[in-house]
Design a protein around this nucleic acid. Structure first.
Lengths: 185, 185
DNA sequence: AGATAGATAGAACGATCGGTATATGCCGCC
DNA sequence: GGCGGCATATACCGATCGTTCTATCTATCT
């Protein structure tokens, strides 16, 4: 029998799931109950709900998932990036899809001092670097501006998929992503 | 001296402002205070907070603003749509910009039964029709799919502008919108 | 004038929020 | 063997949540 993860891991797992399905406004009690963890442990490990929420975003490994999808698509930068949109189409088609966790956090948490905002920023910066690197390898004339376009497409897909169920925004975006790669100096 | 608007209007105005700047999770008390309206009036006119929030979205007139921006841009569909992205650049550059109110409502309100969701859907549907009409007039081979692309771009701009301050996602999206209009049958 | 409808003020409701305090149990380590 | 650190369980805190209620006031219409 596998040993049960410690309270810290259980808290992160429970919070990751509940803040996604119920939103960040989910109560601390619900997280504690699902994690089967004492109230005090939360404050011991994360200082409070804000710290827990921020750590959920920080440790989410979203960038790794993007990297993995691209690596499985081979070497060609164009194919690697287009694979991202294929994956987005699969993700946004799942009934459990509830939008991008980072965008949701950014829009829901009004307090500009909330520690989650820094994590969101860090994630988006990393994603931008990821995309810019692919465009650079592809010989894009302006990798930075091109990455901006790809990020807009990704954010657009994730946002649009929530508000218009049934549409397949990732497919629409994929065609535009091809246009980004068609840019010539 | 102009006569003061009635309680219903004052409630809508206050709610529109506060739910945007503070998020929909703003308290009823704050709305009542800013509207300078009796507690009971809220429940008399809107049945509750949920009804008020939904009515704020419904009466927001977002579609009219899009129409107005396009009308000011003249007759050519391409110019009219590109003007939308110029306007988005202006909007997202304002320091008071806090994201798209509809997307925020959709992501924040987890309860699928919340009346606001229907308003969000209606808005996005209307926007889709608006864009598809322009593409049809332009002779686009697939106005519906093209409108999907434009909506992804718009949602992407509004979402991305919140998470990466300083970037000008509307300019990046504008170039891609041009690509949408370059589509040939 | 009297009646009616709408608005006001304010108390109070039960529920839930995030966070703290107290007290006990379990474990490895010196 | 006792000690320290972590986890547990639970009670409790003040604050705030959305909502309901009573009671008073005011404007309009007949």
């Amino acid at each position: 029998m596998t040993t049960r993860p410690g309270p810290r891991e259980r808290l992160l797992d429970a919070a990751r799931e509940l803040t996604y399905s119920q939103g960040v406004q989910v109560g601390v009690d619900a997280i504690l109950k699902q994690a089967d963890v004492a109230r005090r442990s939360l404050y011991q490990h994360f200082g409070g709900k804000d710290g827990l929420v921020a750590e959920v975003l920080r440790s989410d490994g979203g960038l790794d998932r993007y990297r993995q999808v691209m690596d499985e698509a081979g070497d060609d930068p164009r194919e690697r990036v287009l694979a991202v949109f294929d994956e987005l189409d699969a993700i946004t088609s799942q009934p459990s899809f509830r939008g991008c966790r980072y965008t949701a956090a950014e829009l829901t948490l009004t307090d500009p001092g909330h520690p989650a905002h820094a994590e969101v920023r860090a994630f988006k910066e990393g994603l931008h670097r990821l995309m810019a690197a692919e465009l650079t390898r592809h010989g894009h004339p302006a990798p930075d501006a091109g990455a901006d376009q790809l990020l807009v497409l990704i954010d657009g897909v994730l946002a649009h998929a929530v508000t218009r169920p049934g549409a397949r925004p990732a497919l629409a975006a994929r065609a535009l992503a091809e246009a980004v790669f068609a840019s010539r100096a």
